[in-house]
Design a protein around this nucleic acid. Structure first.
Lengths: 154, 154
DNA sequence: GTGGGTGCAAATGTTTTGCACTCGG
DNA sequence: CCGAGTGCAAAACATTTGCACCCAC
């Protein structure tokens, strides 16, 4: 179930490539923070990562936050949920799915018979009782796109 | 695009039923907080809801939080992302999806050719540029289930 | 050498909690 | 009536930021 050291090495290499591509310096803190995330499948939060990294080297919690933000922007890591900050609520209790703009946080609902018909693999159903399926489509909404380029091009 | 008053009324009725079912008292604060969520498709956060409700009646922000938690437990509202609290990270940059335990926050990855092949409806693609599709399967993991019942029943 | 990265500490933002008072059932 | 719900204020978390120092390039 856990990763082999070959897989971790491969991830490390991809991370280094992502840093170079984005002009990020390779520091001890970055490699060690990344190493902790790459070595686990537990999807840790900033504090859990910090706790594990500080067993090996000294890093401050705020550096962990800055490192996570930098690695995410570089595409070396992902976050489990696209939405940061405050929890958002919805009175729509019918089955539905979301388009989320990662730039401004816009959320729009849509429904999909195709997604509602999705039946998770047996292996996943073994993990527990599945109560609902929500798809999260991440992207950039038209308004943010236009704000970036200055014009409404595709 | 916005909801009709008939739809809002219908939502209100469902909310009242959910409260009665869960033994929650019907208070002015609860109905007004709910009404604000039901009347919008903007997926507001606690602060935004509070700001709008206080235009009409006096409610404290902490009551808004408690109301949201109660309505969510009663099934009258939902939250956009299953995960509360701290952001969680993942070194797996390949396409994959998540099983999330809403009780303990366990997250497990799985991949699915079927989900990866999903093509969002044209109407949704009009909203912006879609960069990725993540499915979130919400449920209760086996460990939490066993902790509840005291025995590992299905 | 120099600008990006880091540590420290303090600020900001989000959510929860203890306690006394109030009101829905 | 009486306990669930509320308001207030303070605490507990989660995350960001300003500034001085340091090191990867």
């Amino acid at each position: 179930m856990s990763l082999t050291s070959a897989e971790i090495q491969q991830r490390q290499a991809r991370m280094l490539a992502a840093c170079r591509r984005d002009g990020l310096r390779i520091t001890r803190q970055r490699t060690e923070v990344y190493r902790e995330i790459a070595a686990t499948e537990a999807h840790p939060d900033a504090e859990a990562i910090h706790a594990r990294v500080t067993r090996r080297i000294a890093v401050s919690l705020d550096t962990v936050y800055r490192t996570l933000a930098a690695l995410e922007k570089a595409g070396a890591i992902g976050r489990v949920s696209a939405l940061h900050g405050a929890a958002r609520f919805d009175a729509n209790t019918a089955k539905h799915h979301h388009f989320v703009c990662t730039e401004c946080g816009l959320v729009r609902d849509f429904s999909s018979a195709e997604l509602d018909a999705y039946c998770p693999p047996e292996a996943v159903r073994q993990w527990g009782e599945i109560l609902s399926v929500h798809a999260e489509l991440r992207g950039i909404c038209n308004q943010c796109r236009e704000a970036r380029t200055g014009s409404p091009g595709a």
